[in-house]
């Protein structure tokens, strides 16, 4: 039962899983790059990022590169811990079957 509890509903989508995976190994990734990596549309990525942001698993930084606005994301410590737990839970579930 406890294993099932660790499966985090917040990560239960391909795009969200992708966002977290990328941000686990990169300090910071910008919107455009994430979009290309995950093969997501603007709206799709934005809404999933928003969901993760709400959980404070990731933070958004908005800045300007020259005159162009640039949005980049990074994972919070809370997000990283939660994602690690999620992966461990997945692995345990697979090990048990």
């Amino acid at each position: 039962m406890s294993i099932i509890n660790n499966i985090n509903k917040a990560f239960d989508h391909r795009i969200r899983l992708g966002i977290m995976s990328v941000l686990m190994v990169n300090e910071k990734t910008d919107f455009k790059e994430l979009k290309e990596l995950l093969g997501a549309t603007d709206g799709n990525l934005a809404s999933h990022a928003k969901a993760l942001e709400k959980e404070t698993y990731i933070v958004v930084q908005k800045s300007f590169i020259g005159r162009k606005p640039n949005t980049s994301y990074s994972a919070t410590r809370k997000g990283k811990t939660a994602f690690k737990k999620h992966i461990e839970a997945l692995e345990k579930l697979l090990g048990n079957n």
Binding site: L17, G18, S21, V22, N26, L38, I87, E91
Partner: peptide, 13 residues
């Protein structure tokens, strides 16, 4: 899920 996490981690870094 596990496979796609691994791929994404590698591909992005």
């Amino acid at each position: 899920d596990i496979a796609s996490i691994k791929t994404m981690m590698n591909k992005s870094s």
